[in-house]
Amino acid sequence: MRSKKIALLVVMTLCIKIMIAQEGLPIYSDYLTDNYYLIHPSMAGASNCSEVRLTGRKNWVGEEDSPGLFTVGYNARITESSSIGTTVYQDKNGFHSQTGAYLTYAHHLMFSRSEVDLNRLSFGLSAGTIQYRLDQSRFVPNGDPIISSNSINTSAFNIDFGFSYHVYNFYIHLTGKNLLKNSGINNDIQITSDLRHYLMSVGYVIDKQNSEWSFEPSLLFSHRKGIDQSSIDFNLKAYKDMSFGKLWGGLSYRRSLDAVKIIQGAESRSQNLNYITPFLGVNYNKFIVAYTYSYQSNPIVFNNGGFHQITLGIDFSCRAKRYACYCPAVN
Results as ranks from 00 to 15, higher is better:
residue 285 N to A: 10
residue 150 N to G: 15
residue 316 F to I: 04
residue 273 L to C: 11
residue 263 I to Y: 00
residue 290 A to C: 11
residue 161 F to Y: 08
residue 139 F to R: 09
residue 82 S to Y: 09
residue 323 Y to Q: 09
residue 87 T to Q: 15
residue 192 T to S: 14
residue 210 N to I: 06
residue 70 F to I: 13
residue 13 T to A: 05
residue 63 E to G: 03
residue 144 D to A: 05
residue 66 S to T: 06
residue 238 A to G: 14
residue 179 L to H: 10
residue 164 S to Y: 01
residue 48 N to W: 02
residue 187 N to F: 02
residue 266 A to P: 14
residue 206 I to S: 13
residue 201 S to P: 00
residue 277 T to G: 05
residue 193 S to D: 15
residue 56 G to V: 02
residue 170 F to L: 08
residue 109 L to N: 11
residue 309 Q to L: 10
residue 2 R to W: 11
residue 260 V to Y: 13
residue 205 V to F: 07
residue 296 Q to M: 03
residue 221 F to C: 14
residue 304 N to T: 05
residue 298 N to G: 10
residue 191 I to K: 08
residue 311 T to A: 02
residue 128 G to A: 06
residue 113 R to Y: 15
residue 38 L to V: 12
residue 167 V to H: 15
residue 285 N to D: 13
residue 49 C to T: 06
residue 111 F to P: 06
residue 68 G to N: 05
residue 150 N to L: 14
residue 167 V to P: 06
residue 231 S to W: 03
residue 269 R to E: 04
residue 177 K to I: 10
residue 163 F to T: 06
residue 21 A to T: 15
residue 277 T to R: 05
residue 301 V to K: 07
residue 236 L to Y: 07
residue 152 I to V: 10
residue 206 I to P: 11
residue 124 G to V: 00
residue 151 S to M: 01
residue 120 R to I: 10
residue 45 G to R: 12
residue 20 I to P: 00
residue 88 V to W: 07
residue 244 F to C: 01
residue 175 T to C: 01
residue 314 I to C: 10
residue 281 G to V: 07
residue 10 V to Y: 09
residue 145 P to E: 04
residue 190 Q to S: 15
residue 94 G to S: 12
residue 83 S to I: 08
residue 226 G to H: 00
residue 133 R to W: 13
residue 196 R to L: 02
residue 30 D to A: 12
residue 168 Y to G: 12
residue 124 G to R: 04
residue 220 L to P: 02
residue 257 L to I: 04
residue 157 F to W: 02
residue 207 D to A: 15
residue 152 I to T: 14
residue 96 H to S: 09
residue 58 K to N: 06
residue 222 S to W: 12
